[in-house]
């Protein structure tokens, strides 16, 4: 990469774990304070913690690059149920408004006042990694001054819960893990930018590699494994992650501690 792209802060949560806040770097967010929570609230709280101290001008122009395997499936089911109820007379407009994979991302733009580019990526197991690589490239090319990158998944209850933990039946997840929130979700967000973009705030890491490659175009369906790998990488502060996304894509991210 010609212009170094740096990591300034990151947050991670997984409502299937206790405590749900898995990690935080470069910021102060440590716990979920809302008594009842929806995934969109959690995502907005996490992103607000991430952007604390970022000037309004930088916020205004920052981009948002998010990966998601399941997209809006959780909300699709809710709208579909409203279609089926009462003989299909009253499909819920509020539920329909949320049936796009980009819904959660656009809610973040409203909450944070982001007016720059927004892209939501789907690349199977590499969705979050692809979002990180692409976001870093937008920063490197000077298309955005800073970017929020990462992945967000809202898990559905019932059969598709198996996606969160491949091979683990939904009942097993439900019986062994207490649900800490109204919606089960996993969110990993990182704030990245050029070395000098945050004024006095020093970056905590530097991406020495962020790239995509093709791969064999075959593989079974998988959850977004890059979410977990990304958390490990960010928590370690340095290292490398390689994800074979199984849709003809491989993503590499290498982080060096500063």
């Amino acid at each position: 990469m010609n212009t170094p792209v740096c990591l300034y802060a990151w947050v991670s949560l997984d409502t299937d774990r206790i405590p749900p806040v898995l990690g935080c770097g470069g910021g102060t967010w440590q716990s979920i304070e809302r008594p009842t929570t929806k995934a969109s609230n959690l995502a907005c709280d996490a992103a607000q913690a991430l952007m604390a101290g970022v000037t309004p001008t930088l916020r205004d122009n920052s981009g948002l690059f998010i990966g998601s395997t399941t997209g809006s499936l959780h909300d699709d089911l809710e709208f579909d149920n409203s279609r089926a109820a009462d003989g299909g007379q009253y499909p819920s407009p509020n539920a329909f408004r949320r049936t796009l994979p980009s819904t959660l991302a656009t809610e973040l733009t409203m909450d944070l006042g982001l007016h720059g580019p927004v892209v939501v990526y789907a690349a199977g197991a590499a969705s979050a990694a692809v979002a990180c690589v692409r976001g870093a490239e937008y920063v490197r090319r000077g298309m955005v001054p800073m970017a929020i990158v990462g992945g967000m998944e809202i898990w559905t209850d019932g059969p598709p819960a198996g996606l969160a933990e491949p091979g683990v039946p939904a009942e097993a997840i439900a019986s062994t893990q207490r649900r800490a929130t109204d919606e089960r979700c996993q969110i990993v967000l990182a704030l990245i930018g050029p070395a000098d973009s945050r004024g006095d705030q020093r970056p905590i890491g530097k991406f020495t590699q962020a790239r995509l490659g093709g791969s064999d175009i075959h593989a079974p369906r998988q959850a977004d494994r890059s979410l977990g790998l990304l958390v490990d990488l960010l928590a370690a502060g340095q290292g490398q992650m390689v994800v074979d996304g199984a849709v003809g894509i491989k993503a590499w991210l290498e982080l060096q501690r500063l």
Partner: peptide, 27 residues
Amino acid sequence: LPELMSESLNIVARRFGLGGPCYGVST
């Protein structure tokens, strides 16, 4: 699960032998 976006893409890429980076965008 149903056929999600990345699986639809996988089917397309495999069917037509397009092997470079491939991903879906939804905005």
